[in-house]
């Protein structure tokens, strides 16, 4: 028992969906709970935190002064820190505050802005600490999550591809929604991993796995906004969803703001 690796799951600013993906591994959950000691997982257990930990899975983005301190302590207590999901890897939808008028945004939602103790920005975990691996997705793919945990336990690099969604569609034999139906799609600039969910549902990819390596967002942005007649504003919003803070998406959205 004492020899089992100790796993901790932490939540920052988020929807709980990524840590839920672990509990959604119904077929594997009891095996996971047998292979590791679940040392801290507040959503699932009342076991109090007591480090050190072998692996810390971190969900959510940094949005408060207190959380900036808490993440540093988690880093000190953990051999490996793996950030999971769009909030933790890019700041999440809430990172749209970074380009807005923060005070106005707070006033819009709360009657007493003076009660709110939050940062003006929402940033990924890697903005504060070194992370050992970033797993993309809004939410993460639970099979990839298990792979990352298994790889981390085995001390090897996780087998998580960083090529585009287009590769995945071709492999799955899914007819290209953009070529065949003229449906705007972020697949060419988005990292694969979801399992081709949107294109299987006859809709364009909305980029919830974030930018692929070396994404040519400029070319795709031009095609969507001009050739497909979506317009610059709606194109900017396509890049401004759950990975709005990821640099290639952030930059591309700004490009369309200029029009």
């Amino acid at each position: 028992m004492a020899d089992k690796p100790r796993l901790a799951v932490w939540k920052f600013s988020s929807c709980d969906g990524c840590q839920l993906s672990l509990l959604d591994c119904e077929d594997e959950l009891l095996a996971v709970a047998g292979a590791v000691e679940i040392a801290y997982f507040l959503e699932a257990s009342r076991t109090p935190p007591q480090g050190p930990y072998d692996i810390s899975l971190v969900e959510g983005s940094i949005t408060t002064p207190a959380d900036s301190v808490r993440i540093a302590e988690i880093r000190r207590q953990s051999k490996a820190v793996i950030s999971i999901g769009a909030c933790a890897t890019s700041g999440g939808f809430q990172a749209l505050r970074n380009i807005g008028d923060y005070d106005e945004i707070v006033r819009n939602v709360y009657a007493h802005p003076e009660y709110i103790d939050a940062l003006k920005t929402s940033t990924p975990i890697s903005s504060r600490i070194h992370v050992d691996f970033e797993l993309r997705g809004c939410p993460v793919n639970k099979h990839q999550l298990l792979e990352v945990v298994a790889a981390s336990l085995a001390g090897r690099r996780p087998n998580v591809p960083n090529y585009s969604q287009c590769v995945e569609c071709k492999r799955s034999g899914i007819v290209c929604v953009m070529v065949a139906h003229g449906t705007p799609c972020l697949g060419p600039v988005t990292q694969a991993g979801c399992g081709s969910l949107c294109t299987s549902c006859d809709r364009g990819c909305y980029g919830c796995f974030g930018p692929k390596e070396e994404a040519n967002t400029k070319s795709l942005g031009k095609r969507i906004s001009e050739d497909f007649g979506v317009g610059h504003r709606a194109t900017a919003d396509m890049f401004r969803t759950f990975n709005a803070g990821a640099e290639p998406f952030r930059r591309e959205a700004l490009r369309h703001d200029e029009h």
């Binding site: 929807c15 949005t63 809430q94 505050r97 707070v106 819009n108 709360y110 939050a118 969803t241």
Partner: peptide, 23 residues
């Protein structure tokens, strides 16, 4: 922590609302 979705949804396409509020 507050995420201010209500404010951040303003001015977006109606069709964004379901996917954003899901989060």
């Amino acid at each position: 922590p507050p995420r201010f979705f209500e404010a951040l949804l303003r001015g977006r396409m109606y069709s964004d609302a379901p996917d954003v509020t899901a989060r």
